[in-house]
Amino acid sequence: MKLISISSSKGGVGKTTIAANLAHMLSLRGFTVLAIDFDSQNSLRTHFGIPLSDTQGFVSKALRQSDWSPFIISVSNNLFVLPYGECDESTQSIFEQRLLNDSDFLHHGLQALRNTEGLILVADTASLSSPAFKALTQLADIQLIPLLSDTASMTQLPYLERTGFLEHPQSVKNFFILNQTNPRSDVCQDVETFAQNTLSKQLIGQIHRDESVLKAHSAEQSITDFNRLSAAAADIEAISDKVIDLLGLEIGTGAIYHDLKESIRE
């Protein structure tokens, strides 16, 4: 199993949208992919056609059942999602404390998945300071951090540097994506240049500001399914291929791998 953890230094940067569309594109590349939601907003599911009225998820069950795989929902033959689900504040608090203080909690929850050959797990976490992100750090093969193409996001770079996410021995698996770039905006162009100079090889791609992204989410589709010819779809495809390279994998032929739930049962 390969694990990609996605988080952000502040809200509203498109983290969940990127996680969902990256998972979808990786599945189109021929990999078996599970998108798992560690964010209590429980919004990752909406990108996979799961209705708002559907409250199922794994967090409310995780305190009683060590294996989280029974709560996986199939999206397509090789794309799956594990929603956060609805739970009360007390359950959420206990879940987060277990993530922080019990090193076996996360390992047991993902154990059946970790033994699944050829699986890529895309984990959507809340923030860089969240219990889930901290717990996943030890397991993640790479960590993706989206930044908006604006001056406010650039002010986050000193914080990221202080906390070891930039050009640091422990930062070798930390990579950045610049979101909502606009080639017609002088400010965005200045931000892009600054980000490229500051982040260097840790900046693995950008996603253009594209109305198709919002329309795709409203239609409960990936950007690729909604408009394959859009700029954002091309950006997601390029980032996906870069992630595959960083993980040391080869792009598949598009052939569907074995069913994830069946492989867990074996």
Rank of each mutant, 00 (worst) to 15 (best):
S7G: 06
S185N: 04
I120W: 01
E86K: 12
K201T: 14
A216E: 04
L110F: 06
F80R: 00
I251V: 14
G252H: 02
V172C: 12
V13G: 01
G252Q: 00
L147H: 02
A123W: 01
E96Q: 14
K134V: 09
L214K: 15
N77R: 06
T55Q: 11
F176M: 05
V187A: 11
I256L: 09
S90T: 15
E250L: 08
L113P: 00
L136V: 12
E89C: 11
F80T: 02
K201I: 11
T125N: 05
T155K: 14
K15D: 04
L79K: 00
D67F: 03
V59T: 07
T224N: 10
S43Y: 04
Q170C: 11
A20H: 00
L260W: 04
S60T: 15
Q111I: 10
Q138S: 14
E192F: 06
I94A: 08
P131W: 04
R98D: 10
I36N: 00
L144G: 03
L3T: 09
Q196N: 12
A35L: 06
I36Y: 02
T253A: 09
F48N: 00
I223W: 02
S153T: 06
P51V: 10
F194Q: 14
F194D: 13
L249F: 05
I251H: 06
L79T: 02
Q196C: 08
N101E: 14
D225V: 13
S40E: 07
I142H: 05
S66I: 08
I18P: 00
D39F: 03
I18V: 10
Q206L: 10
E86N: 13
A126C: 12
V33Y: 00
A195D: 03
I36Q: 00
L160T: 01
G30L: 07
I204G: 02
G118N: 05
G14C: 07
L28G: 07
K261S: 12
T137V: 12
N174M: 13
S69G: 06
I18G: 01
V81I: 13
L26H: 01
L44H: 00
D235C: 12
L106C: 11
N42D: 11
L166I: 12
F226H: 07
T181P: 04
